[in-house]
């Protein structure tokens, strides 16, 4: 089986997994107390015409399996339902918050991966040195502190105390941009967004980098004792070539496998961080929707999240197929 067959297979599996995931999400939120139909029936703020139209469109008076069919049909058409709390389609609500989450997550992920892998390789290369020991200590220390606690600490330090001590510079503690900044020019706006992004991103990224580089370090240290490294040296390669051509790629393999895992962690982290920093992303929106029983929104958010996670996994598997021939040629 070549690479193409391998990718096709993975795509197929990912599609199946996605289908299963949305099915679970659907049924989960129809069996719990306070199901959507009741809510629509009792919510006075929804105007009766609109209510009827919604009940009709989503078949909320129909039996569950029929609702499921309707749900699938609507999903296929890109309709995730209507958030009765925000009074607009779920797709719009998510569409508003998703870019922020993607900005946060995407940037963090890329930084994690790139810096983490290279830092890991570097400390592995210098194993036993002071730098390495320092790294190990930092990793263990930082890992022992819960993420949102770090977040709160950062807010207290860089947003509150900094101002209290009268330093000229501080970071905002909430929001993704200054109110009214949409009228500013491109660059001032970009700077504003980055300024708001700085604290949550840092908190999220430090943990990620440490995790990734820790993993990478362990792998590389193992790989460097392999026989083929000796062979590479005997060919006349210099140390850099040995490291990057032979050791690096092998060490990176398990790291890639771990991407799926780290995406789950990242999303979890994002929910926490967005909550702590009042960042207007999907994560914060999700928990607001939850405590206020806005089921269509919750459902929509879960679908998006599982979609993203599966996408990440899929990409990881495909990358794995590219770098590890044993996987795809078996």
């Amino acid at each position: 089986m070549g690479l193409r067959g391998y990718i096709a297979k993975k795509l197929f599996f990912a599609a199946v997994a996605f289908f299963v995931a949305i099915t679970i999400v659907f049924f989960l939120y129809h069996v719990i107390p306070g199901n959507p139909a009741n809510i629509f029936a009792t919510d006075r703020t929804v105007n009766p015409d609109q209510r009827d139209a919604l009940l009709e469109r989503w078949g909320l008076n129909e039996p569950l399996w029929k609702q499921y069919g309707i749900f699938l049909r609507n999903l296929f058409q890109g309709d995730l339902g209507f958030s009765y709390l925000q009074k607009m389609p779920v797709t719009d609500v998510i569409g508003e918050s998703l870019p922020w989450t993607l900005l946060l997550l995407g940037t963090s992920f890329v930084l994690n991966a790139v810096i983490g892998i290279f830092l890991g390789a570097f400390v592995a290369w210098r194993r036993g040195s002071k730098l390495d020991t320092g790294f190990v200590l930092t990793y263990n220390f930082y890992n022992a502190i819960p993420l949102f606690f770090v977040g709160m600490l950062f807010i207290a330090l860089f947003s509150f105390y900094v101002r209290k001590w009268g330093w000229g510079f501080y970071f905002p503690a909430y929001g993704a941009q200054t109110a009214g900044s949409s009228e500013w020019g491109f660059f001032p706006r970009l700077v504003d967004i980055l300024w708001h992004l700085a604290l949550p991103l840092t908190v999220l990224t430090i943990a990620g980098i440490l995790g990734w580089s820790w993993f990478m370090r362990g792998n590389l240290i193992n790989i460097l004792t392999e026989d083929y490294i000796k062979t590479a040296r005997a060919k006349g390669l210099n140390e850099n070539q040995v490291l990057y051509k032979h050791a690096f790629r092998n060490a990176i393999l398990p790291v890639v496998t771990n991407i799926g895992m780290s995406i789950g962690g990242l999303i979890g982290g994002a929910v926490l961080i967005e909550t702590v920093f009042s960042y207007p992303g999907t994560g914060r929106m999700l928990y607001e929707a939850l405590i206020r029983h806005d089921y269509p929104l919750v459902q929509g958010a879960f679908i998006i999240i599982s979609g993203l996670t599966l996408l990440g996994l899929l990409i990881a598997e495909i990358i794995y197929g590219f770098i590890d021939p044993r996987i795809r040629t078996e």
Binding site: P146, F148, G268, V271, L272, V276, Y287, I291, F302
Partner: peptide, 24 residues
């Protein structure tokens, strides 16, 4: 995360944590 969040006595944080862990 769950235990720690309980100590914040903040329902929103607790829920946020629960949601993120449940799927995984």
């Amino acid at each position: 995360a769950l235990i720690v969040s309980v100590y914040t006595l903040n329902l929103t944080v607790i829920i946020a944590v629960v949601i993120t862990t449940v799927v995984g």
